[in-house]
Design a protein around this nucleic acid. Structure first.
Length: 111
DNA sequence: GCGTTGACCTCCA
DNA sequence: CTGGAGGCCAACG
């Protein structure tokens, strides 16, 4: 396993995101050791293999916003499922990161 | 191996 | 809010 490090890593981390929590591209990229590779994380999400069952909807940008809409079928759609999972949304339409920003459990490399 | 593109991030106007 | 510019890394043609 561990074919392509980067993508595989992203998938691993994202799949570890619990319900009611969200992670940012930059955050995940930082976990991989490349805080500047947020774009790759985004591509990883875009190319998310279905068989991996990755909750890409829990991955958003740092501002608490998400992709324009070419993703899961619409931003509002994502907003609904995230809210359903327990994620809090602010009036401005962004996710309440302070409450729902997920942090990787301590015991796997530092950060 | 190069050039372009991309679900990003940050700064500045 | 919108716009441009720079930077990062990987996939695609």
């Amino acid at each position: 396993m561990k074919g392509s490090n980067f993508f595989n890593r992203v998938y691993e981390i994202v799949s570890q995101i619990p319900e009611g929590k969200v992670a940012t591209y930059g955050q995940i990229a930082a976990m991989l050791g490349s805080p500047r590779a947020a774009r790759i994380v985004g591509e990883a999400m875009r190319r998310t293999p279905e068989y991996l069952d990755i909750p890409c909807h829990r991955v958003i940008s740092k501002d608490g916003t998400m992709a324009p809409g070419y993703a899961f079928g619409g931003e509002g759609k994502q907003r609904e499922m995230l809210e359903k999972e327990g994620v809090i949304f602010k009036e401005n339409g962004c996710v309440d990161m302070q409450r729902c920003l997920w942090r990787k459990p301590i015991m796997e490399r530092d950060e």
